[in-house]
């Protein structure tokens, strides 16, 4: 049960229950779908830029607690970040949940994202956590098609 508590931390359960920025966006500069055909997680992400920074991120759709909390926390964390900063966070986050980076060494940069460190112990759930980030990464780098985890 300890590992389950590691995975489903309070902050993740809270964001799953009450996701932040859970809405569509009319004046979005980028709209991208993220889809995990394996489990059916399916989100649409909206990004709005001001100058070269991310002014606003929102999303809608459905999926498991891990993917929804990840999308919610990502949408909050990215607000006000430059594209370069978003790329750095993308690398950091994917490194943590795949177990390639040690979260303890990056706690300051991670902030709330540290809640996802437990995902590394659940290989089949890594894609749930990374789906929002991969979709966002695609949006920032000009992909205009649906991002799939498969």
């Amino acid at each position: 049960m300890d590992e389950i508590r590691e995975l489903y931390q309070e902050v993740i359960l809270d964001h799953n229950k009450h996701p932040h920025n859970f809405r569509s966006m009319e004046n979005a500069d980028a709209v991208l779908e993220g889809f995990n055909p394996l489990c059916g997680d399916h989100y649409t992400f909206y990004l709005r830029f001001e100058d070269d920074a991310i002014a606003e991120v929102s999303f809608e759709g459905s999926g498991c607690a891990i993917s929804k909390a990840s999308a919610s926390i990502m949408s909050a964390v990215l607000q006000g970040k430059s594209r370069e900063e978003a790329d750095v966070l993308f690398e950091l986050f994917t490194g943590i949940v795949t177990g390639k980076l040690d979260p303890v060494e990056h706690l300051e940069k991670l902030g709330k994202l540290a809640a996802f460190a437990g995902v590394a112990e659940f290989p089949v759930r890594v894609k749930c956590a990374t789906l929002p980030w991969h979709t966002m990464h695609g949006a920032l780098h000009g992909s205009d098609s649906q991002i799939s985890t498969e």
């Binding site: 389950i4 995975l7 489903y8 489990c39 607690a65 749930c128």
Partner: peptide
């Protein structure tokens, strides 16, 4: 409202 994937992970444990 618990997603089946979350159910599956916890049951697996």
């Amino acid at each position: 409202a618990i997603h089946p994937h979350d159910i599956g992970t916890i049951l697996d444990q």
